[in-house]
Each structure stands twice: as structure tokens, then as C-alpha cells.
Amino acid sequence: MHDWLASPPGQYLLAWERVQMAQAVANVFGYHALQLGLPELDALEANRMPHRWLATPTPAEATILPQESATSPRVALVTDFSALPFSANSLDLVVMPHALELSADPHGVLREVARVLVPEGRVVICGLNPLSMWGFCQRRPNWFSWMGAQRLLLPSAGECIGYLRLRDWLSLLNLEIEDSQFGCYRPACSSQAWLQRFNWMDKAGARWWPILGSVYCLVAVKRVRSMTLINPARKAVRRLAVAPVTVANSSGNMRATGQNDIQT
């Protein structure tokens, strides 16, 4: 996928995702943020957290830097995305640009992200939409050879994860979708000239077929449901009122007294 990202459609994809990431992470506050994969995109550039890391699955990818951040290297660590070296409830923000599609265990990656996120923490996910022209090109690359898109967008082991399918996975982990956007409606042409010919499809697609965008970007929040314990023992004890009664003393006189004065 790294070679494809250097092509005109790959740059077109990165440009759209860079804008969406900047809007999604700009107003997310906290202390610790993590980006999983895709070092070509500095997804945390617009974020202002003091601690920001980039995690890659291989050492070779840790040396890749985006053109915009070539003078300011980011902290990179090599780890398995399904076994992150962070304690539970320790990260405020996790950004996943195409990390699920390129992972052999996307369910395990999502569970691990839900584990390390703090309550009300956010996760930003970008992925290719299978219900789009690019998704169809991923499954039938030879059908679009006339546009030069004979190569797969994702590696042969990669799989496009649909938006509705991902939404069900997130709901099982108590990750509530806060915002979602679709984009990149142009065909995956191999030349910049062909991409410019279809630039009108971005505005038309956003208006007439928004859910058929080639790429989606969503923001989900980790919700932790709290409860208030109702303890009957904490209720105030209702005391009986002391009613006066008439008793006779040893001298035979009658007087009114309370129950506390009665001696047996």
C-alpha cells in the first residue's frame, strides 16, 4: 500500500484524510495520543496533546515520514496492534488510518483499542468503503484496467470493512459513533490528468450519493455506563411517636405519662 500511496490516487486519498483528521483531533484534549499505522499521514499534527506516538507493525515503516513532517520526526514504536504496550484506561485518543484493513485480526485490534482508551476517550478510524467504486476495484481490479487501476488498492491480504459492519463492532465494545464523513468520489485513475477530469464528482457525490464515498472517516467515543446504588439501610429510620397513657401509682392517683415512664 505504501507504493500506491505515492501515486496520484494515493495522494488524493491522503489529502482528503489529512483534512478529516485535522478536524477530528483538533479539539480532543488530554495527555496521551496514539496513531496506529500509515506513517505517510501525520494524523496527530493538529492535536495539542503533550505526548503523541506513532506505532507501526514493522521496523521499516517506523522510518517513513510524511513530507510535511520530515523536519520534525515523530516518536515511533514497533508493536503488534492487537497487543499494545499500554495499560488499561491510559490513552485519551487513538487514531487508526486503515489499521483494521491491514490487520490479520481486526476484532482483536478493536478490543485492544477499547481496553487502552480512557472513559470518554475517542478513536478515529479511516477505511475504504466496499460499497464504492474503489471497493469494487479492490475486488475486481481487472475490470478497471482502462483507467490504469490494475493494481490492488490494498494488499491481497487486506479486506475492506464496511461502515455498517464496523458500526456493529463498535457498539459491542461500548464505542458510540459521534461523527462520520464520506469522501473521495472520483475513480482511482492512475494519472493526475484523469483525476482532474472527474473532479466534479466530489461535489455531486457528497450531495446525491454520500454513503457511496470511497473512503469513510468516523469518530467514536468510549462510553462507560455508571450506576447509582440504592441502599435501603441508608434511609432514615422512622420512629414511632410516643403517645401518653394513663397509669395508676401506688397511692391510687391517676397521672398521664409516656411509654418511657412505664415500669414493669
Score class of each variant (00 low, 15 high):
G148C: 01
G148N: 04
A149Q: 07
A149V: 07
Q150Y: 09
Q150I: 14
Q150T: 15
L152H: 07
L152M: 05
L152N: 03
L153M: 15
L154Y: 13
L154Q: 13
P155C: 07
S156V: 14
S156A: 12
S156E: 11
S156K: 09
A157E: 15
A157R: 14
E159P: 03
I161V: 07
I161M: 05
G162A: 04
Y163P: 03
Y163F: 09
Y163L: 06
L164M: 10
L164G: 10
R165F: 15
R165D: 14
R165E: 14
R165M: 11
L166R: 04
D168E: 10
W169V: 00
L170A: 04
L170R: 05
S171Q: 13
S171D: 12
L172I: 08
L172H: 05
L172T: 06
L173V: 02
N174G: 14
L175E: 08
L175M: 10
E176T: 13
E178D: 15
E178S: 13
E178P: 13
S180A: 10
S180D: 06
S180G: 00
Q181G: 11
F182A: 05
Y185M: 00
R186T: 04
R186F: 01
P187H: 00
P187M: 00
P187L: 00
C189I: 05
S190P: 07
S190V: 13
S191W: 03
Q192K: 01
Q192L: 02
Q192F: 00
A193Q: 12
L195C: 11
L195T: 13
Q196V: 13
Q196K: 13
